[in-house]
Measured scan of single mutants.
Amino acid sequence: MATGGRRGAAAAPLLVAVAALLLGAAGHLYPGEVCPGMDIRNNLTRLHELENCSVIEGHLQILLMFKTRPEDFRDLSFPKLIMITDYLLLFRVYGLESLKDLFPNLTVIRGSRLFFNYALVIFEMVHLKELGLYNLMNITRGSVRIEKNNELCYLATIDWSRILDSVEDNYIVLNKDDNEECGDICPGTAKGKTNCPATVINGQFVERCWTHSHCQKVCPTICKSHGCTAEGLCCHSECLGNCSQPDDPTKCVACRNFYLDGRCVETCPPPYYHFQDWRCVNFSFCQDLHHKCKNSRRQGCHQYVIHNNKCIPECPSGYTMNSSNLLCTPCLGPCPKVCHLLEGEKTIDSVTSAQELRGCTVINGSLIINIRGGNNLAAELEANLGLIEEISGYLKIRRSYALVSLSFFRKLRLIRGETLEIGNYSFYALDNQNLRQLWDWSKHNLTITQGKLFFHYNPKLCLSEIHKMEEVSGTKGRQERNDIALKTNGDQASCENELLKFSYIRTSFDKI
C-alpha cells in the first residue's frame, strides 16, 4: 500500500482533458527560462521544448504516446526543470519506465491550478516501474492521483506527508504495488545497510526511497516546507523545498512566496507586481503582455491589467481597466465587458449561442446573426445582446428569417469595421425574408467608422429604411451602385405612401 494514499474509496472516473512563447529569463536562482504550460502528445517531438525550461508557468501534460519505446527515452533528460506552477499529468506514455532521468531536479509542483483537485496525476502508464522524482520536495496545493499503472512499484516507500501538507485526498490505487509483488529495495538494503531515512506512518517504520538508488530526502521537522541542505541544516524561511546553503534567500532552489532578481522575498516591493503567484514583474512586463494579447485571437491570451499590486489576466467583477495605466478602477454604474472572439468572429444561430455573449459591452471581433427560429426570440436576444455598444469588426445579418427588427441591439452605437466582410463591408444584410426595420432612427444613433453597407434580398425592408441608415451611420456616399439592390429590397412591402385627393359631386333626387 502506498504510504499516505487512500484505498478502496469510491472515486469519480478520471477524465483526461485534452506555445513556446518565453516569458522571460528567471535569473540567477533558476538555471534556465520560464516556459508556458505545455500539452505534449502523440510523439516526442515537442518534448524537446523543455530543454531550457527551469519553470513551467502553467501545467505540463505528457500523454497518448503509443509508439514510443524505452530506448526512445534513454537520452532524454531535462535537468534544468525545477518547478511547475500548476500540475504534472502523465497518461498512456508507452515505453517510459521512470522519471528519474527525465526530470531529475523537479523540486516543486505548486498546484496553482489543479487537474480535478490533483497536482500530480500518473494514470495508465503501462510501462512505468517507478516514479523516480527523487528531488520532489513540495506539492504546495492539491493532491496526488496514481492509478492503474500495472508495473509501478516504489510507492509504499514514499512518505507523501513530507511532500504535501495533507495526504487525506491522495488516491493511489490499482498499481502493481497493490499486489505486494514489488519487493522494493532501498539503497544499501541488499548489503544489509540502512542508507535512507525511515519514518513512521500508520504504525509502520519504513525506509523512504524513490528507487533502488535514490533515497527520499527527509528534512528535520523544524525546517517545515522550506527544505534543508545535504547536511540537514534548514533553508531560509522564504525558500521552498530545498537550498544549497542554509538561511540564505539567494540560495533557495525555489521560493515559498515570490522570486525577485535572484532572491526569494515575502512580497513584491514597489515598483514590482505579483505575477502568477510566484514571481515579481515590473510595469513594462505587464504592459507588454497586455499589448501582445490586445489584437491576438490565441486562446488563453489575456490583456493583463494591474489590481491590488498584482498583474492579473482581467479586472475583477465591479472594476474596469483604465487604459492609460492598466489599473483596475471601480465602475460607475454597470461595468464594461470586452469579449474577445477566439477566431475573430462568432455566429449567433440560437439563443444558446447568444447567451455566451451575455453582459458583453464591447465585441472584439465580428458578429454573424443567422437565426431561423426560436421561442420568445426578441426578448431572449435583447437579454443577451442588448448591452453590446461596440463591435470592432463587422455585423452580418444573414438568412435570419425569424427577425423582424434589429432593435434587440438596443445599445449598439459603434461598428468600427477594423475587419470587413469580403474585404469591403462593415454591415452586411443578406436574404432576411421578414426583416422590416433596422432601428427606430428617431431614437437610435449608430456610427460606422469604416467599410460599406450591403443589402440584398431583404424583400420587406424598404429602401427608405436603408437610406436612413446611410445618413445616420455616416456611410452615405461610400456605397457603390450594386451594394444596395434596388429590386430585391422592399419588393414585397408597401414602401411608397402617396396622399390621394378626392373630389365629389353631391346629387339628390331633384338636383344634379
Score class of each variant (00 low, 15 high):
residue 163 I to L: 10
residue 336 P to L: 07
residue 280 C to Y: 00
residue 159 D to E: 12
residue 309 N to E: 09
residue 41 R to S: 15
residue 303 Q to R: 12
residue 291 H to V: 14
residue 223 C to R: 02
residue 282 N to L: 06
residue 87 Y to V: 00
residue 187 P to R: 03
residue 155 L to E: 09
residue 31 P to M: 15
residue 195 N to D: 07
residue 76 L to K: 15
residue 209 C to N: 05
residue 273 Y to M: 15
residue 315 C to W: 03
residue 67 K to C: 08
residue 272 Y to S: 03
residue 86 D to Q: 11
residue 248 D to K: 03
residue 172 I to S: 13
residue 328 C to N: 02
residue 60 L to Y: 00
residue 220 P to M: 03
residue 102 L to G: 02
residue 246 P to L: 06
residue 127 H to N: 04
residue 39 D to E: 15
residue 274 H to V: 12
residue 185 I to Q: 13
residue 269 P to C: 01
residue 139 I to K: 01
residue 275 F to T: 03
residue 31 P to A: 03
residue 139 I to P: 01
residue 253 V to S: 15
residue 58 G to M: 00
residue 199 T to F: 10
residue 178 D to W: 10
residue 219 C to Q: 01
residue 88 L to T: 00
residue 116 F to A: 11
residue 140 T to W: 03
residue 275 F to D: 01
residue 235 C to V: 00
residue 89 L to T: 05
residue 151 E to L: 11
residue 301 C to Y: 09
residue 156 A to T: 06
residue 159 D to I: 10
residue 199 T to D: 14
residue 80 K to F: 03
residue 220 P to S: 04
residue 307 H to I: 07
residue 263 R to S: 07
residue 150 N to I: 12
residue 317 S to H: 04
residue 113 R to T: 09
residue 334 P to V: 15
residue 313 P to T: 08
residue 194 T to L: 14
residue 301 C to D: 03
residue 60 L to N: 00
residue 315 C to K: 01
residue 162 R to A: 12
residue 187 P to N: 14
residue 215 C to V: 11
residue 55 V to S: 02
residue 225 S to P: 12
residue 336 P to M: 06
residue 67 K to I: 12
residue 228 C to E: 03
residue 65 M to A: 13
residue 211 T to A: 15
residue 105 N to Q: 09
residue 75 D to W: 05
residue 334 P to M: 15
residue 128 L to G: 01
residue 315 C to Y: 02
residue 285 F to W: 08
residue 165 D to F: 14
residue 44 L to R: 07
residue 272 Y to G: 01
residue 236 H to Q: 02
residue 252 C to Q: 00
residue 105 N to H: 03
residue 68 T to P: 07
residue 112 S to L: 15
residue 206 V to F: 15
residue 156 A to N: 15
residue 335 C to R: 04
residue 46 R to T: 03
residue 121 V to P: 00
residue 313 P to Y: 03
residue 244 S to H: 10
residue 261 D to H: 15
residue 161 S to M: 08
residue 315 C to F: 03
residue 241 G to R: 08
residue 32 G to H: 04
residue 198 A to V: 06
residue 255 C to K: 01
residue 158 I to Y: 07
residue 192 G to I: 01
residue 168 E to S: 15
residue 333 G to A: 02
residue 332 L to R: 07
residue 295 N to C: 06
residue 194 T to P: 12
residue 215 C to D: 12
residue 38 M to G: 04
residue 317 S to N: 04
residue 212 H to W: 08
residue 160 W to K: 02
residue 280 C to W: 00
residue 224 K to S: 09
residue 160 W to A: 02
residue 175 N to H: 15
residue 183 G to F: 13
residue 113 R to A: 03
residue 234 C to M: 04
residue 161 S to D: 04
residue 197 P to T: 11
residue 143 S to G: 08
residue 200 V to L: 03
residue 180 E to F: 06
residue 58 G to Q: 00
residue 69 R to T: 05
residue 213 S to M: 13
residue 217 K to Q: 10
residue 190 A to P: 10
residue 68 T to R: 14
residue 42 N to Y: 12
residue 87 Y to P: 03
residue 122 I to V: 07
residue 81 L to R: 00
residue 217 K to I: 14
residue 309 N to M: 09
residue 164 L to C: 07
residue 51 E to V: 08
residue 287 Q to R: 15
residue 78 F to T: 01
residue 237 S to R: 11
residue 227 G to V: 11
residue 58 G to T: 01
residue 295 N to A: 04
residue 101 D to N: 06
residue 154 Y to H: 13
residue 171 Y to M: 14
residue 166 S to H: 07
residue 185 I to V: 15
residue 235 C to K: 00
residue 146 I to F: 07
residue 251 K to N: 05
residue 95 G to K: 04
residue 243 C to T: 00
residue 156 A to H: 06
residue 121 V to M: 07
residue 66 F to R: 02
residue 224 K to V: 08
residue 40 I to K: 00
residue 118 Y to Q: 13
residue 289 L to K: 15
residue 120 L to G: 00
residue 255 C to L: 00
residue 299 Q to D: 08
residue 80 K to Y: 04
residue 169 D to G: 13
residue 76 L to M: 05
residue 96 L to C: 10
residue 178 D to E: 13
residue 56 I to F: 00
residue 116 F to V: 03
residue 179 N to V: 12
residue 269 P to M: 11
residue 122 I to L: 08
residue 307 H to W: 14
residue 229 T to V: 06
residue 130 E to K: 12
residue 128 L to K: 00
residue 74 R to Y: 11
residue 158 I to Q: 07
residue 178 D to V: 12
residue 327 L to D: 15
residue 56 I to P: 00
residue 203 G to C: 05
residue 201 I to V: 14
residue 228 C to K: 03
residue 74 R to F: 06
residue 304 Y to T: 14
residue 138 N to P: 01
residue 315 C to S: 07
residue 174 L to M: 13
residue 215 C to N: 14
residue 301 C to F: 08
residue 194 T to V: 09
residue 303 Q to L: 09
residue 191 K to S: 09
residue 327 L to M: 08
residue 182 C to R: 08
residue 201 I to P: 15
residue 137 M to W: 11
residue 293 C to G: 01
residue 99 L to I: 10
residue 124 E to W: 02
residue 151 E to M: 09
residue 200 V to S: 13
residue 92 R to F: 06
residue 145 R to Y: 11
residue 112 S to D: 15
residue 145 R to D: 03
residue 157 T to M: 04
residue 234 C to T: 02
residue 218 V to F: 12
residue 329 T to E: 01
residue 189 T to C: 12
residue 265 V to T: 09
residue 61 Q to S: 14
residue 293 C to V: 04
residue 100 K to I: 06
residue 279 R to W: 04
residue 187 P to L: 12
residue 144 V to A: 04
residue 248 D to A: 05
residue 248 D to Q: 08
residue 63 L to Q: 07
residue 265 V to G: 03
residue 73 F to T: 04
residue 67 K to L: 06
residue 75 D to F: 08
residue 200 V to C: 13
residue 144 V to P: 02
residue 190 A to K: 06
residue 75 D to M: 11
residue 164 L to S: 08
residue 126 V to A: 15
residue 178 D to A: 15
residue 268 C to P: 00
residue 86 D to R: 02
residue 160 W to S: 01
residue 39 D to Q: 13
residue 129 K to S: 09
residue 335 C to H: 09
residue 231 E to L: 07
residue 300 G to N: 06
residue 242 N to H: 10
residue 302 H to F: 11
